[in-house]
Nucleic acid binder design. Structure first.
Length: 185
DNA sequence: CCCTGATTCGC
DNA sequence: GCGAATCAGG
């Protein structure tokens, strides 16, 4: 596609607006970003307001000039379009809310181990069970709860639909436990 | 690996 | 004049 006055004008405008060469090329259509850049340079309007860095090109000791002629036709190579997969209209999923829970230190100064873990203490495992440092969360739980609030959410979090409010979740957990599942510890 | 602009040079 | 190939970098 030729560089008509109109297209050049558009190019100038978009370039002045700060659009990248690829963006301009996409908008103009029929040209690649290389074409846009080449045109920009020919027009004399190169550097803008430093998009990122001057990007000074250091002296290139062109030791190996690349063969640009078509005489060296590569066998069946033919740089086909990279088949840009810009088809799927994927909807960005909202960032899942992380539930960070730090290991709890008991008032006694110890961690909740298998020996010190008692009723009303969160049984959430912390660390490698095969390791001596293995312990439990130990956070206070509501009576009948196996885990503290934070770990209850982690333990009973359905992976499918987590649309409900935290309050609802807590209630659901409580109901779940109240209806039969006593802390079997 | 995505992107950016810069440069070269056969056409 | 044009722009693909290539480069140099973020």
């Amino acid at each position: 596609m030729a560089w008509t006055d109109e297209r050049v004008e558009t190019l100038k405008k978009l370039w002045a607006d700060g659009l990248s060469a690829s963006q301009i090329a996409k908008q103009l259509g029929g040209v690649t970003r290389n074409a846009v850049i080449g045109k920009v340079h020919r027009l004399g309007l190169s550097g803008r307001a430093a998009p990122s860095r001057p990007t000074r090109r250091i002296a290139t000791p062109k030791l190996a000039p690349r063969p640009r002629t078509a005489t060296s036709s590569s066998p069946a190579s033919a740089k086909a379009k990279p088949s840009n997969g810009s088809e799927p209209a994927v909807v960005r999923a909202p960032a899942p809310a992380p539930v960070p829970v730090e290991p709890h230190v008991l008032p006694s100064g110890d961690y909740a181990t298998v020996l010190t873990l008692r009723e009303g203490m969160c049984k959430w495992p912390v660390g490698d069970p095969a390791d001596a440092s293995f312990r439990f969360c130990g956070h206070k739980t509501t009576p009948g709860q196996a885990y503290c609030e934070a770990h209850s959410q982690m333990a009973y979090q359905p992976q499918a639909k987590r649309k409900r409010k935290p309050a609802d979740d807590a209630r659901a957990v409580l109901d779940s436990l109240a209806s039969g599942r006593r802390a079997n510890f």
